[in-house]
Design a protein around this nucleic acid. Structure first.
Lengths: 99, 99
DNA sequence: ATAATTTGGTTTATAAAATAAACTAGTTTA
DNA sequence: TAAACTAGTTTATTTTATAAACCAAATTAT
């Protein structure tokens, strides 16, 4: 069976990292994601919007200690897409030798 | 331990597919790679050049049945990079829950 | 024999994506 | 009250991926 397409929305280092983190914690705020992924705020902001547009994550805005706070959590749809991506990618990682 | 950087040269669907295929067969010609990856000739040509520039693959040109033939094989350096990429990527695929 | 088609590509142009830089809005500290 | 910091967003630039156009030669059809 041939190599499958990789969901381009997930085949991005930063977006994949975000999804991986969210899959683990189920909820995380902007600053946490920024630190864990070593990304710039601008880049993270853009990529979070893309994940939100695809309904892979939900973004909630609130205030914490007077400061704005952006909290993200993965949706069911996002989890399905993430798992599918992982399965597809695994085929790329363990090359099959043609005898 | 945090998420590692993913080698951007390998974090490309087509280049990764090529490397995965070459890791399995150790030698493949242009047409084979084109078919297996479902890529266009132009795209494949460009990506092969990039892999060659990085010394991840070797490209040999010859003639077979009067037609030009481009044969690719992975280098040791390419294999090292591929294996490292795979190890790094695995961390993204199996999310760790923070308790 | 020559015109059309096919093989096996490369080069160039365009579209999309990632990233960085600049900006906004407000808060805290000196 | 000015400077510096938090927490982002928006815009611009660079990079990447992809597609379209092209090239050279071989084969096939007329």
């Amino acid at each position: 069976m041939a190599l499958k397409e990789l969901n381009p929305l997930l085949h991005s280092q930063l977006r994949l990292a975000v999804m991986s983190l969210l899959a683990g914690v189920k909820e995380a705020d902007f600053s946490f994601l920024k630190e864990e992924t070593n990304s710039t705020a601008g880049n993270l902001s853009v990529q979070l919007q893309k994940l939100k547009e695809a309904d892979y994550i939900e973004i909630e805005k609130s205030f914490k200690n007077n400061y704005p706070q952006t909290t993200c959590k993965m949706t069911d749809k996002g989890l399905v897409a993430f798992n599918e991506y992982v399965e597809n990618l695994k085929e790329y990682l363990s090359p099959k030798s043609k005898s």
